[in-house]
Amino acid sequence: MRAAVIVFPGSNCDRDLAVAFGQAGFSVDMVWHKDDRLPEGVDIVGVPGGFSYGDYLRCGAIAARSPVCNAVVEHAERGGYVLGVCNGFQILTETGILPGALLRNAGLKYICRTVGLRVETADSAFTGGYGTGDVIDIPIAHHDGNYFADDDTLARLRGEDRVAFTYQDNPNGSRDDIAGILSANRRVLGMMPHPERAADPGHGGSDGTAVFRALAGVLQPA
C-alpha cells in the first residue's frame, strides 16, 4: 500500500498528511512539484493543504499546471485514488478533476476552527468507515473555501450521490453547505476540512482517522 504526498512550494500540511497515511499503514513517498511522474506502484495520491505558490492568481491555479499535476491527472484518469485536502481540493478543481471552484469565504474572514460535518454518503473508499448521516468534528482552516458550482453541476453531484460531506453550520457560504465532493468514479475526494488534523488523540479529536483507515482497508493488497 503506497501513498504519494505532493509537495508544492507553500504546502504546509504535507507532513501531517504523510503521518496520517503512515499511521494507517501506508508507506509514503513525498513527491516534489517539479517531478513529472509519480513513483511506481502508488495507490493513492495526497494533495495537501497550504498556500501553493502563495495563492497567486487564484488558489491552486499555478499548482494545477505544475509538472507533477499532469501526472496526478493521468493517475486519476487511469482510475487511481486521489485525496485533496483544503488547498489540495482547490488544486483538484483547478485541474478539472473535480467540478466547481472555491471562492473567497462569504464572510471574507480566514476561518480556523473545528466544525461539525455530516457524512452525506458512506459509499466511497474514503467515507466507508462512517455511516451515512454521522456527524464528525474536523478542523477547517481556510480563506477560500466557499464551494461554488452551477445549478446543473449541483444537481448532478446530488443525483450521483457525490457529495461526501456537508457543514452542519455553513461557515463560508458554500452552496448546498458542501464541504467535500467525489469524482464520478468515486475515487477522488476533495474536501476543505482537514481529516489529517484530526487523526491523533493529541490533536484534540480523531474523527478524521476513519478516512485513512477506510482507504487502507480498500487498498490493502489481498
Partner: peptide, 9 residues
C-alpha cells in the same frame, strides 16, 4: 482558457 481565468466562475 487554460490559466488566466477559471471559466467555471
Amino acid at each position: 482558457e487554460k490559466l488566466l481565468a477559471n471559466t467555471v466562475i
